[in-house]
Amino acid sequence: MASESGAHIANDKSITSHAAILHAFEEFRSDLDLENDRRERIVKSSRDITINSKRVIFLLHRLAIAGIDDDGVKDDRTDYVEAKKKLAEIRVIFKNLQHELEAERFWHHQSAISPGMQEYIEAVSFLHYLEKGKMISYDGVLNSLRDENGVLLCPLSLDDYLLGVSDLTGELMRFAITAISRRGGRRKAREVSDFVRGCKADFDGFSPYVKQLSKKQAVTSQSLQKIEEAAYAIAVRASEYGENDAMLADIVEQCVMG
């Protein structure tokens, strides 16, 4: 059947002159150039998203530690308004890219947007952890990528989600090491180490299927070990004197502050 009709069509689709061939290729040229230009725009935006997300992460570290210093006892109601504002600015970049990544274009240029997307996910998941003490879900990230009308600014691949949230463990390690020598730090360290241990276990099942994930899992293991060792150091010191963190902290504070 196909071959019968094929004979007819084939004649229509024959390019029979030199000029016609050149013409066909000129169309290819503009198609290829168009897509290359598009990719270039996406790459640039992806770099912008990366840089801004990295800055959000630094900001979150500052706010989180300030929160602990202000009040290590109260239930961590630090205000992350400034970070949220910066995240909203990043979403403007996504918004501007929206039409470049519509329909099948997303998967066409996925590798160009991927680095920025992963860094963005790292930032939102860090904020989410600081606020909720939990891992942000796939839908959570997806929802963060919606505009006021609930329209998705950019599709989200499972791989980017997993690779992005994997990077969170490194930041949590940095956070825990800093937090640990503060008031209430021992509790924080234990929370983080339980959380990171959970992340590692949760992601182990995915790593054979997601490229690069096993490399990130190795980094997570290292981070986890660093947190565990820090928690150990605190525990060992405390064990010599007793178990009441807060009371001990008060004594130390009096010594230091006079």
Binding site: A2, G6, I9, A10, N11, D12, K13, S14, I15, A24
Partner: peptide
Amino acid sequence: VHYLETETLLSLEGVSSV
């Protein structure tokens, strides 16, 4: 195959259709 039969170039659309 198209060339062998017609000694012309089959267009992208033509290939798609075949």
